[in-house]
Amino acid sequence: MTTPARTAFDLGRRLSRENAVVVLDALCAATGLRTEEVIELSDLHPGARGITRLREVLPLVDGGAESPQESRMRLLLIDNGLPQPETQIVVRDHCGSFVARVDIGWEQWKVAVEYDGAQHWTDPAQRSKDIDRHAELTALGWLIIRVSADQLRTRPHIILNRARTALRTQGAHLNS
C-alpha cells in the first residue's frame, strides 16, 4: 500500500509523458490528490530516477478530466500552442441557472471542446439531449467543437484548426 502522492510520484517518473498525464489525471480525480502533494514528495527525492519527467508532467495534470480521451485532448491543445484550457466548466444562463458542464474549454472566450464517446452517437436519447444542449450553449454565445475518437486518433489537425478558428472568432489573440 502507498499513498496517492507516492503512487503519483512513482508513476509520473516511469510512464511516458502522455500515459503519465492520463493516469495522474485519473488518480487525482479518484482520490482528491493535489499536485502540490507530489511536488512536496519530489522535493524530498531530488535525485530520483525520472524526476525530470515527473516535473514536466505535474503542471499538465488536471483532476477535472473525466476520461483518458479528455486528458489526451487537453494535451493535444496545449502541445500545439493553444492557451491552457479549463476542465468541467459550468455554464449558466443569464439568470444563473445551470445549463451545462463542458468537458474542456476557455470560459473567457466561450469556446468548448467536447469529447463525444460512442454513446453520444448511438443512443437516440443521448443524441437528442446533446442536440438540445448544443442549442442552449450556442444561444448563450458558446462555440462548441465536438470531437470523436476517430478524429482524436487520426485527424488531430482538424480539432486544432477548429479550436484555433473558434478562439480567434471569439476574440482570442493566438501566436500560431
Rank of each mutant, 00 (worst) to 15 (best):
M1S: 13
M1K: 06
T3Y: 09
P4C: 06
P4V: 04
P4W: 04
T7E: 11
T7C: 01
T7P: 00
A8V: 02
F9A: 04
D10N: 13
R13G: 08
L15G: 10
S16G: 14
E18Q: 12
N19E: 14
V23T: 15
L24Y: 04
A26Q: 12
A26D: 13
L27P: 02
L27T: 04
T31R: 02
G32E: 07
L33V: 04
R34F: 03
T35S: 06
T35H: 05
V38N: 02
V38G: 01
I39C: 02
E40F: 04
E40C: 02
L41W: 13
D43V: 00
D43H: 09
D43A: 13
L44I: 02
H45P: 02
G47C: 08
A48P: 07
R49T: 11
G50E: 08
G50L: 05
L54A: 00
V57T: 09
L58E: 05
L58I: 05
P59N: 00
L60P: 02
V61E: 00
V61Q: 00
D62F: 00
D62S: 04
G63W: 00
G64R: 11
G64V: 01
G64S: 10
A65M: 02
E66H: 09
P68M: 12
P68R: 12
E70M: 07
R72A: 00
M73R: 15
R74Y: 06
L75W: 12
L76C: 10
L76D: 09
D79C: 06
D79Q: 15
D79Y: 06
N80V: 07
G81L: 09
G81E: 06
G81D: 11
L82N: 07
Q84S: 09
P85G: 11
E86N: 10
E86P: 04
Q88A: 08
Q88E: 06
I89P: 03
V90K: 15
V91I: 06
V91Y: 05
R92S: 10
D93P: 01
D93A: 07
C95S: 14
S97H: 13
R101H: 08
R101F: 08
D103G: 03
G105C: 07
E107T: 06
E107M: 10
E107Q: 14
Q108P: 00
K110M: 08
K110R: 15
E114G: 10
Y115G: 01
Y115I: 00
D116C: 01
A118N: 05
A118G: 01
Q119T: 12
H120T: 05
W121L: 14
W121M: 09
T122C: 04
T122K: 13
D123Y: 10
P124V: 06
Q126W: 04
R127D: 04
R127P: 02
K129M: 09
D130A: 09
D130T: 08
H134V: 03
H134E: 12
H134K: 11
A135H: 12
E136Y: 05
L137P: 05
L137H: 12
T138R: 13
L140D: 03
G141K: 10
L143S: 12
L143T: 15
I144F: 05
I144R: 05
I145P: 03
R146W: 10
S148A: 13
A149C: 05
D150A: 14
Q151Y: 03
R153I: 11
R155D: 03
H157A: 15
R162A: 14
A163L: 13
T165P: 03
A166T: 06
L167N: 08
Q170E: 01
G171T: 03
G171Y: 11
A172V: 01
L174R: 14
S176E: 14
S176D: 15
